[in-house]
Simulated scan of single mutants.
Amino acid sequence: MPPTDASTGTGAGPAPQLGGGAEDTLDLQLPEELFAPFREDELAFAPQRTDDGAGHLLDTPACWGPATTPLGPFQLVPVRIERDLALISRWMNDPAVAAFWELAGPESVTAGHLRAQLDGDGRSVPCLGVLSGTPMSYFEIYRADLDPLARHYPARPHDTGIHLLIGGVADRGRGVGSTLLRAVAELALDNRPRCARVIAEPDLRNTPSVSAFLSAGFRFSAEVDLPDKRAALMVRDRALRNLL
Rank of each mutant, 00 (worst) to 15 (best):
M1P: 14
M1A: 13
P2Q: 08
P2E: 04
A6T: 09
A6V: 05
A6G: 10
S7L: 04
T8V: 03
T10R: 06
G11K: 05
A12D: 11
G13Y: 08
P14E: 14
A15R: 15
Q17H: 09
L18Y: 10
G21M: 03
D27M: 10
D27Q: 13
D27K: 15
L28E: 05
P31A: 04
F35S: 07
F38G: 15
F38I: 11
R39Q: 12
D41L: 02
D41V: 06
L43G: 11
A46L: 14
Q48C: 07
R49S: 09
D51T: 11
D51C: 04
D51Y: 05
A54F: 14
H56K: 13
A62C: 04
C63Q: 14
G65C: 00
G65K: 04
T69S: 00
P70K: 02
F74R: 02
Q75D: 11
P78W: 10
R80Q: 14
E82V: 01
R83W: 04
L85H: 13
L85K: 13
A86N: 12
A86M: 08
A86G: 14
M92Q: 03
N93K: 01
A98P: 05
F100H: 12
L103A: 07
P106F: 05
S108E: 15
S108G: 08
A111W: 04
G112I: 01
A116P: 00
A116Y: 01
A116D: 04
A116E: 04
A116G: 04
R123T: 08
S124G: 06
S124R: 07
C127Q: 07
C127S: 07
G129N: 00
G133A: 02
T134D: 14
M136R: 14
S137D: 13
S137P: 12
S137V: 12
Y138K: 11
I141T: 15
Y142K: 10
Y142E: 08
Y142L: 06
L146F: 06
L149A: 14
L149I: 12
R151Y: 12
Y153K: 12
R156I: 07
R156N: 10
P157V: 07
H158E: 12
D159N: 13
H163G: 11
H163Q: 07
L164Q: 03
L164F: 02
G167I: 05
G168L: 13
G168N: 13
V169S: 12
R172K: 06
G173F: 00
R174D: 12
G175F: 05
T179S: 10
T179A: 10
L180G: 09
R182D: 01
R182I: 01
A183Q: 01
A185L: 00
E186L: 06
A188V: 15
L189I: 06
D190F: 09
N191L: 02
N191C: 10
P193C: 02
C195N: 06
A196K: 14
V198H: 07
V198L: 03
D203G: 15
R205Y: 06
N206S: 06
T207C: 07
S209D: 05
S209L: 00
V210N: 10
S215G: 03
G217I: 01
F218Q: 00
E223V: 09
L226K: 12
P227K: 09
D228R: 15
K229R: 14
A232M: 06
A232Q: 10
V235G: 02
